Simulated scan of single mutants.
Amino acid sequence: MTDFTGGEFAIGETLRVGRLGYGAMQITGPGVWGPPRDPAEAKQVLRRAVELGVTLIDTADSYGPYVSEELIHEALYPYPEALAIATKAGLVRTGPGVWVPVGRPAYLRQEAEMSLRRLGVDRLDLFQLHRVDPDVPLADQVGLLAELQAEGKVDRIGLSEVTVAQIEEARTYATIDSVQNLYNVANRQSEEVLQYCEASGIAFIPWFPIQTGALAQGDGALGEVARELGVSPAQVALAWLLAKSPVMLPIPGTSSVAHVEENIAAAEIELTVEQLARLDGLAS
């Protein structure tokens, strides 16, 4: 039996994962472009995450591009039975730090087929539209994902950086089982989306889940709580996310084995009601 890290959540009711996962964006080069400086360490980070119980790894074709998916295959294939790999398509890379939405169905199909090949699988556990392309009807973008699902090439469908209205429209074209939006202890701009996901049983995957910065310094609540518990501010930020909602699936990323160990240890932190209240007050 799997001991799910951070507790268990079933994406789409059947894809069972630990609620604290790993985001594989940072195992690429600077600007999320090209290979990492130390590919061997990047692969060790992936292996260590799985050793520590991570059962959800989130990646994208655009990370590198392609580098992240290739490293996941090199490090972890053949994959443990309990491991789910989520990937995304819909952002084209033209250089370091440059991300351009492209949602043409033919392009999304091509990228899904290539992700299948790079990851070495017959079906993608969770395939997410990385960004909505404003120049392509949402019906065409999500409709293509639904086609791939009907063909058996995709198990579950997700969206990224969307509004409640976009989720509702997308759900008329396909079953949406996850949403990945920017969200952390300091940035709650997707609060309405989180509430919608919770009410609908949709997994909410917060990207950029650790945003400490000045909040962790001096008398800031994040730093205060970290000192009270004898842990790092990053761990407190992750523990807060896990406590925030049962549909929350944080995916902190790192290129360091030590940091991946620290992040995963956050699943064991229990915040008091008073500490949670203080952290709730940090929203900008």
Rank of each mutant, 00 (worst) to 15 (best):
T94G: 05
G95E: 01
G95F: 12
P96C: 05
G97L: 05
G97I: 03
W99C: 10
V100N: 14
V100S: 15
P101E: 01
P101V: 10
A106S: 15
Y107Q: 11
Y107G: 14
R109A: 12
Q110P: 07
A112T: 05
L116Y: 02
L116S: 01
R118W: 02
L119S: 00
L119C: 00
D122K: 09
D122E: 03
L124P: 00
D125T: 01
L126P: 00
H130N: 02
H130I: 02
P134D: 01
P137Y: 10
L138E: 02
A139S: 11
D140W: 08
L144M: 14
L145A: 07
E147V: 09
L148P: 03
Q149P: 06
Q149R: 15
E151A: 14
K153V: 04
K153F: 05
V154S: 03
V154G: 13
R156T: 10
A165P: 04
I167D: 00
A170G: 02
A170W: 06
T172P: 08
Y173R: 11
T175R: 11
D177K: 11
S178F: 04
Y183W: 06
N184W: 11
Q189L: 13
S190E: 11
E192S: 13
F204L: 09
I205M: 11
I205V: 15
W207D: 10
I210M: 15
I210P: 13
I210D: 01
T212Q: 04
L215E: 10
Q217Y: 06
G218S: 04
G220E: 03
E224A: 14
A226D: 07
